[in-house]
Design a protein around this nucleic acid. Sequence first.
RNA 1: GGAGUCGUAGUUCAGUUGGUUAGAACGCCAGCCUGUCACGUUGGAGGUCGCGGGUUCGAGUCCCGUCGGCUCCGCCA
Length: 599
Amino acid sequence: MERTHICGELRSTNVGQHVVLMGWVAKKRDFGVFTFIDLRDREGITQVVLSEEDSPEAHSKAKNIRGEFVIAVKGTVVSRSEGTHNKKLATGDIEIKVTELLILNDAKVPPFQLEVAGSENLAAEDTRLKHRYLDLRRPQLQNNIRMRAKAVRAIREYFDKRGFIEIETPILLKSTPEGARDFVVPSRIHTGKYFALPQSPQILKQITMIAGFDKYYQIARCFRDEDLRADRQPEFTQLDMEMSFVNREAVYREMEGMFNHVLRLIDIELPNEWPRMTYAEAMRRYGSDKPDLRFGMELQDLSEGLRDTEFAPFAETLGKGGEIKCIVIRGKADYSRKQLDELQEFVKRYGAGAMAWIKVGEETTSSILKVLGEAKLTELASSAGAQPGDAVLIVAGRRSVVAAALGALRGEIARRENLIDRSLYKCLLVTEFPMFEHDEESDTYMAAHHPFTSPMDEDLDMFKQAVQHPADHYLLGKVRAKAYDAVINGYECAGGSIRIHQKDVQALNFKALGMSPESARTQFGFFLDALEYGTPPHGGFAAGIERTCMILCDTENIRDVMAFPKTASAQDLMMDAPGIVDQSQLDELGITPSHNPEP
RNA sequence: GGAGUCGUAGUUCAGUUGGUUAGAACGCCAGCCUGUCACGUUGGAGGUCGCGGGUUCGAGUCCCGUCGGCUCCGCCA
């Protein structure tokens, strides 16, 4: 028997045709003298009918069939009789009158039900991850994985058309000190030495520019041995691109062009030129470097209005150069004490000491009513744009803490109160990221993007000043980089920069990062050498394939767009990885574990 | 590394102030059923209440520890 059609493609126009379908039994409905089977394959479901009268042999075989059996049916496409059409199925106008049935394979009773009404009734995720091959049969995941394939194809299409060359870079590289924790691979031939898996092909893609390829791209697997999140896995895929002889504008055009092309897969037309916002503005207005612009609720600054306050926590904050900011929640003056306490607990996770609130109404109430008085509170609330019926949530503290707390709170409230219009797709280029991040504990500066990012021309003198004069070191915190992110719906979908192509600036940067020339040479010697042989100005970006697919598939979980994801504790429950290896493998690699896992 | 939350039948869940035989739905097994598509119907099987310890006359329920899933903080150039 040879398959002639796919389940899900047959329509009334096919009535009368003799067909062979193959697939999995999604559902069986047994009526004694006849049996209905919903036959499922990757394209959909077709109802097949086995009747004792018409085909006794096939009908009796069907008695032994259960869910997820793999079967083949031969039969005729017939129109369903009046009143038995099923509008829920694309194939609901027809059914297959079966003449011959073949059981291609039986199946154990699945450990969970594939077909359940409503996603909230799905089996626990660990059960589904253990039997990922069954979970993947669900139409939802089938669609996501296929959308991902389409997205990757669209990306290749885009860059091929634009003259970019796809270049594969090695998976076995050398460990470099900065950035995420490396996954490490022992070398057998060089016992005691190790490869590292790429966190991203950063240096190699820059070298393709030095090598003269001009325009490079790659769908690159990346590995970072860090803790997981709903949108983060230890291995993930990036679209990685780089181009020579360009400025930021040229890279922006490619980012916009690529995402605009990909979003057309779901019939979304983003603007040709994306709105832009500097990092500083994003942090000030939204408390985030990846603001979700599908809703408002911007942060409002109350610092000026409280400049002369005697309320100790506020006065102290302002005295230390901190900020007092708030968000206004429309129509939520009816928040209960319990709800407000919960929100306070929420902001404390981000380092906020407390959360003050004002409920604006005929009678304004507030957690700080006694200390500030109603008149002052009314004035503050109105300066923040609050109207009667609104709630004002206030956080005071260090600038970074206020931004993190209120930025997160803004998102949390939008989710809780359903303020996000899910039909909207809001894109944004965030520009002028800081060059360095200050580490309080060690009082050192670390690369905010990566150590090859170019400072902005306007800040170059300040950069030199800061590196060359220890007393001005703090100025590093003010240096802006030619670094940028592409943000869609609050997700950082891509990030990139114009790179340093002059060896003296690169040397300064290593110095700024506290790296001696010797250690820079040990770590990046090959790259510094390469920079000296005629490096063109260049820049590019990398886009997270999974995050982009999450937007395409309208899901908030990265596992929904990966065929074989790992759990939050970085395990593969299906193959039970990581696992132990044979002692002889360890011997060969010269590895003696300092401790062994529990059996 | 830290916090929150969940863990009871194959699955999703209920299980009262600690009380005697731990329930429901779906699934599964067996039968009946000529138009279902969440088929119906009759009957049946199915439990290490995650694991370990403690309190108690008595623990699914309370306490401590531990393991696992998920989410978040730290981390993720």
